[in-house]
């Protein structure tokens, strides 16, 4: 996990050095950052195996609270975005391919909503809502010495702080993805059936023909991966705050930017692997 050592700003004045020296320091910084990122994730993973039954119960309660904030409280926003995006897809198809039947709409739904938009939009919503909240909360905890206080009481920050936030982000993204998909499918089906000439059987047939067994692996793989990524980066950058309250918004912003960049990259990689495995989306 990132160091929780309080920071002395007097030490931040780096001595003058040559171009080679500055370059070398830059390389070392990159490696240190990568090491710090992996250390945060590793500490959370190891915390699962830390003994202590009472501690497990305390952490479980923190986890439920986090799931409430991250997952349950995002339902309204996810509902609205899911319904509006579903409607947008139908309108686009009707305008671009006026002769489109429900089977085509079904296939587009699977390719666009289930495989791409559900994971990505949900991760963006969780990063925007909860990622900033997590990074801000942890940053303030650093400034107020709350993380040191937990350590002094023998409470592991990785177990008490990072693990529940990381797990709740992963669980919330998966559950919200399922919900987002359902809302988007219902909205698309409703509007699609009103506008398209074919019936619901054709729509369901189109969805069925586009789905493959790999889709379940892709769906849940993306969900768990994106959720973990958002929780991980938010905690990591939150702990990046050293001693000044002015660092809190900076780190919160960096947490969201890096979460979004990481999410899009991860999503693209998994999509590429998926289509390389199963072939083109519209057959």
């Amino acid at each position: 996990m990132r160091s929780t050592v309080p920071f002395d700003p007097r030490a931040s004045r780096a001595p003058e050095s040559s171009l080679a020296g500055r370059l070398g320091r830059r390389v070392v910084d990159v490696f240190r950052r990568a090491e710090g990122l992996l250390a945060t994730l590793g500490a959370a993973a190891l915390a699962v195996r830390t003994p202590g039954l009472a501690a497990r119960e305390v952490v479980r309660r923190v986890l439920f609270t986090q799931i409430l904030y991250t997952g349950f409280q995002a339902v309204g926003l996810v509902s609205a975005i899911g319904a509006l995006l579903g409607a947008t897809i139908v309108i686009q198809i009707e305008l671009m391919v006026p002769s489109a039947d429900s089977a085509l709409i079904g296939k587009v739904l699977v390719a666009v909503v289930l495989r791409e938009l559900a994971p990505l939009i949900t991760a963006i919503v969780v990063a925007g809502r909860s990622g900033t909240a997590i990074a801000t909360e942890l940053g303030n905890m650093q400034v107020n010495h709350e993380v040191l206080a937990l350590s002094s009481l023998g409470i592991d920050p990785a177990r008490f702080i990072v693990l529940p936030r990381l797990v709740s982000a992963a669980v919330s993204v998966v559950v919200l993805m399922v919900y987002f998909s359902a809302v988007a499918l219902i909205a698309t089906a409703g509007l699609g059936l009103l506008l398209a000439s074919a019936g619901s059987e054709s729509l369901v047939g189109g969805i069925r023909s586009a789905l493959t067994p790999y889709d379940f692996a892709l769906f849940f793989g993306k969900g768990l991966g994106l959720g973990t990524l958002v929780g991980w980066l938010s905690c990591h950058y939150g702990f990046g705050v050293k001693s000044s309250p002015t660092e809190v918004p900076q780190m919160a912003s960096r947490a969201v930017v890096m979460s979004l960049f990481g999410a899009v990259t991860f999503n693209t990689l998994l999509t590429a692997v998926f289509y390389w495995t199963v072939g083109p989306p519209l057959r």
């Binding site: 303030n140 107020n144 010495h145 040191l148």
Partner: peptide, 12 residues
């Protein structure tokens, strides 16, 4: 260990 911090330290 019991630790009393000069400022802060209580979980807000």
């Amino acid at each position: 260990r019991g630790f009393v911090f000069q400022h802060g330290g209580l979980l807000s």
